[in-house]
Design a protein around this nucleic acid. Structure first.
Length: 218
DNA sequence: AACCAGGACGTGA
DNA sequence: TCACGTCATGGT
């Protein structure tokens, strides 16, 4: 077995299934996890179950850019109260109202704009799955956000690389600190079976491991 | 009281 | 291409 797969098994054994992506209206078990309030569904890879949840994941992926999840969750709760976890609603929403609703997630001017642009794109999809290139061509969607949307909203096995991935695996020595996003993504995808559940779980485990070791320089 | 969080974009070299 | 500044709130 290769190193990448071995480390996955170690993390899974140590932390257990993480239940990503967190959803507001998930009504099942409610494990207490680092920096989160609720919404995780460990071992259950059947989400999203509807278009509503799919869109919620997409805008959550945008809102969490360089921002911790609890602050994103507050923003999502505000949007939900406004009945605005909906592309048409966000598209037509007053920009100032949108900004104040998502304020807690930071960068609200940029993110409000990103949500509006993405909502329009989402409407035009008319239920189709977006491609990675289509997502990357949208202003406000970079590689990590695109992969998160593909992987968690659409269950397409596209590995998500984030700052934690680079930190942990460069410390181990499996990648270099300055290695490109694509190069790291390829390493993981070439080392793992092409299974969206495995990709989802691994990325979540990497985040969990990083949070558990944040002051240990790993 | 700095520092950072599940990044992305614009700019100049 | 690439390093660097900018965006912004809130938790630790």
């Amino acid at each position: 077995m290769n190193q990448i797969k071995k480390i996955y098994n170690v993390f899974l054994e140590k932390y257990g299934p993480q239940g990503w992506w967190p959803l507001l209206d998930y009504k099942g078990v409610n494990p207490t996890k680092t920096g989160s309030v609720k919404g995780y569904h460990p071992g259950n890879y059947s989400y999203p179950k509807n278009e509503n949840q799919r869109f919620e994941i997409c805008i959550g992926a945008i809102l969490t850019q360089n921002t911790s999840w609890p602050q994103v969750e507050k923003a999502l709760i505000n949007l939900k109260k406004l009945n605005a976890i909906n592309p048409e609603k966000i598209k037509n929403m007053n920009i100032n109202k949108l900004c104040s609703a998502i304020k807690s997630a930071g960068y609200f001017n940029q993110k409000a704009k990103k949500l509006k642009i993405f909502s329009e794109f989402y409407i035009n999809l008319k239920g189709k799955k977006p491609t990675r290139d289509e997502l990357l061509n949208i202003w406000g969607i970079g590689p990590e956000t695109a992969d998160s949307i593909l992987l968690y909203a659409y269950k397409i096995p596209s590995f998500v690389v984030d700052a934690y991935t680079i930190r942990i695996f460069s410390a181990i020595g499996l990648i270099k600190k300055d290695e490109s996003y694509q190069s790291i993504k390829r390493l993981f995808e070439n080392s793992l079976e092409k299974d969206f559940r495995l990709y989802q779980e691994y990325h979540a485990l990497i985040v969990e491991h990083a949070k558990n070791n944040k002051n240990k320089k790993l």
